[in-house]
């Protein structure tokens, strides 16, 4: 039995180590590699201490119309052109922008925040950690 086990473990270790090589290359060279620092995310407890926040709801219009953060403006990533003007009217240099979507696994808030930074040149743009789920779980007020 030992004669079988030793090469088996060697095979397992070999595959595990071989996979490490392209993984390290990906971490270095991949154009879509994730950043080790999750930039731009902010916890709800932090936002609670901010005076003037412009809330951006990056969820689809149907989800927004059901319920949203008080004062939030709807800016789904797929309807950027038709909604961005309303956002720009509400925006002011001293206002911090916080974008949210459904929860941890959605990417819409990151996409919208990235576009606001790159296409509009806004600096104070953040993504709410946990998104709408975090807001509801904290028992915060919602607008329907």
């Amino acid at each position: 039995m030992n004669a079988v086990r030793i090469p088996l473990l060697r095979c397992v270790a070999g595959v595990l180590l071989l996979a490490l090589v392209p993984a390290l290359l990906s971490a270095w060279l991949h154009p879509r590699k994730p950043s080790w620092e999750r930039t731009g995310e902010v916890a709800l407890s932090t936002v609670a201490g901010w005076a003037d926040v412009l809330w951006i709801d990056a969820r689809p219009a149907t989800a927004y119309s059901e319920a949203h953060v008080p004062g939030a403006l709807n800016l789904p990533s797929g309807a950027w052109e038709s909604h961005i003007e309303t956002v720009l009217i509400a925006w002011a240099p001293e206002r911090r922008v916080v974008v949210y979507c459904d929860g941890h696994s959605c990417r819409a808030s990151h996409e919208v925040a990235a576009r606001m930074r790159t296409e509009l040149g806004l600096e104070n743009v953040h993504v709410l950690t946990g998104g709408w789920d975090a807001w509801r779980q904290a028992g915060r007020e919602v607008v329907k």
């Binding site: 595959v15 595990l16 071989l18 996979a19 490490l20 392209p22 993984a23 390290l24 990906s26 971490a27 991949h30 590699k33 994730p34």
Partner: peptide, 9 residues
């Protein structure tokens, strides 16, 4: 970064 390459290897 690692899991996809582990699956491929």
């Amino acid at each position: 970064l690692y899991l996809p390459w582990l699956e491929l290897m």
